[in-house]
Nucleic acid binder design. Structure first.
Length: 484
RNA sequence: GGCUGCGUAGCAAAGUGGUUAUGCAUCGGCCUGCAAAGCCGCGUACACCGGUUCGAUUCCGGUCGCAGCCUCCA
């Protein structure tokens, strides 16, 4: 039985979909005016994992993740660059998709864009005006009248009085109430605009998600997700808009992931302490980043540091090492591990425990290998399949272990110039070592070993180690290698 | 100021009213020519102070510390 922590009730609840066997999930995606940072990566990976697991659990899932491709920041950035805002957003959408592919984030079923949903947005605003939840302000902008919506604050645990007392709410004379927020914003000269009953303008920040989610999934759907910081005001406003416009309950389960932190501080654009996915990919391969994200529970804070990423890399190497050289048979997942894994994931997607199950499985696999047990193939299949549910361990083990720590230089043009670095990162080596050279050295050493010339054999091994190559002699006399 | 949440062994991270989390690191052993990998063994950790209880890291109250939201942010 799957339980999900619901922000709306601040408790774990049994997950019951509205229609048996079917799930609609909407996740707030990116506002595309810059590269994704690790915080964005967390949202992507977390909800990708949720989506994978829901499907594994047998649900027919419709996963929607929007793209907000029009807003003040986009306009501002495009203006700074002297380019059309569409050129800017297209570029960053492509970059985002690239980052997602790297992190094994599967595409959502639907990826609506705000600029392609303008009709729906206008229709919803019109509905809100009709139902007297919205009004045209003194400056021509359309505002949502927060005081008209009874449940305002129910998601974030705020009450309107406290909010009014806050000093940080902008005073805007065009609004009737400082808490009211914009639904439709009139275009200033030179700004992009769409025609509407209220004049030429663009949608406010929150309305696009209400419009896109209800259009794709219906007025009332199962799961809505996003980062913690969207709880207020973004998601609160979405509820007010959607429920105001439709008169129906909007969402049953609200899921919010915790932040990525740097030195105990939130990683964010405004603090400037963020690392973009592509930056980190120069140092760590994508699967390590994904593993790192999954190694803590999605609602906990996740502290970003090289040490943590290094640990994730070591841990992943252990799992791949267990799989190396094993012929994976086509077998169902071992029942015991499957149950433990599902028990973990059923408990609000407890990926750290799910990963612990993989490590236990790896240990048993290693033992089985030593005993020449016939279970080896099945255990390996189980490990790979369970890893697949988390979006890890899908590479060829030997290829993974021989691969460079960084993203494959050829994968993306702009990474072509990265240099190899040794495991400690203290020194760089040139790209002269290639697989043939390593194989040659390995052969030389095997011959030295045959001649019992241990000094030479050790010398060769040390030389390779200096290049970040670790040789491992198997009991059967063969030697394998990997990059450390 | 209002509202959330957190504080677990050297590091990271789960979890639980009384029995092994797990990964990394350290140490000992097996294996190995020596290593590496692997396997086995080794850690009275649960911020502090009270309370409830036969028993609390786990429940309750308080203290301290940290983070987040209340403003654009995943």
């Amino acid at each position: 039985m799957l339980k999900i922590y619901n922000t709306l009730t601040r408790s774990k609840q049994e997950f019951v979909p509205r229609q048996p066997g079917k799930v609609g999930m909407y996740v707030c995606g990116m506002t595309v005016y810059d590269y994704c940072h690790i915080g964005h990566a967390r949202v992507m990976v977390v909800f990708d994992t949720v989506a994978r697991y829901l499907r594994h659990a047998g649900y027919q899932l419709t996963y929607v993740r929007n793209i907000t491709d029009i807003d003040d920041k986009i306009i501002q950035r495009a203006h700074q660059n002297g380019e059309a805002f569409t050129a800017l957003t297209e570029r960053f959408i492509e970059a985002m998709h690239e980052d997602e592919r790297a992190l094994s984030v599967l595409p959502p079923d639907l990826e609506p864009k705000a600029t392609q949903s303008i009709d729906d947005i206008i229709a919803m605003i019109a509905k809100l005006i009709e139902r007297e939840y919205a009004y045209v302000g003194g400056n021509g902008d359309v505002f949502y009248a927060v005081s008209r919506f009874d449940g305002y604050g129910k998601l974030s645990g705020k009450n309107i009085d406290d909010l009014n007392a806050g000093e940080r709410v902008d005073v805007d004379n065009a609004k009737r109430d400082p808490l009211d927020f914009v639904l439709w914003k009139m275009a200033k000269p030179g700004e992009p605009y769409w025609d509407s009953p209220w004049g030429q303008g663009r949608p406010g920040w929150h309305i696009e998600c209400s419009a896109m989610s209800t259009c794709c999934l219906g007025n009332h759907f199962d799961i809505h997700g996003g980062g913690m910081d969207l709880q207020f005001p973004h998601h609160e406003n979405e509820i007010a808009q959607s429920e105001g416009a439709t008169g129906e309950q909007f969402v049953n389960y609200w899921m919010h992931n915790g932040f990525v932190r740097v030195n105990e501080e939130k990683m964010s654009k405004s603090l400037g302490n963020f690392f973009t996915v592509r930056e980190v990919l120069k140092q760590y391969r994508p699967e390590i980043i994904r593993f790192f994200i999954l190694s803590s529970h999605y609602r906990s804070p996740l502290n970003y540091s090289d040490e943590q990423l290094d640990d994730a890399g070591t841990a992943l190497t252990r799992l791949y090492t267990a799989l190396r050289g094993v012929e994976i048979i086509d077998a169902p997942i071992d029942e015991e591990y499957k149950q433990r894994f599902e028990q973990a994931m059923d408990d609000d997607f407890n990926t750290p425990v799910a990963l612990a199950v993989l490590f236990d499985l790896a240990r048993e696999l290693n033992k089985a290998k030593a005993n020449q047990s016939e279970r080896v193939g099945q255990l390996a299949a189980s490990l790979k399949k369970l890893g697949g549910l988390l979006g890890v361990l899908q590479e060829e083990p030997d290829k993974y272990l021989k691969g460079q720590k960084q993203r494959d230089a050829v994968a993306v043009g702009e990474f072509a110039s990265i240099s190899l670095s040794n495991p400690t990162g203290t020194a760089s080596v040139t790209g002269q070592i290639n697989d043939e050279w390593i194989e040659q050295k390995k052969q030389q050493r095997l011959e030295a070993k045959k001649a019992k010339n241990w000094t030479l054999a050790d010398q060769i091994r040390d030389e390779l180690k200096q290049q970040g190559i670790i040789l491992e002699d198997a009991p059967d006399g063969t030697t394998s290698w990997r990059r450390g």
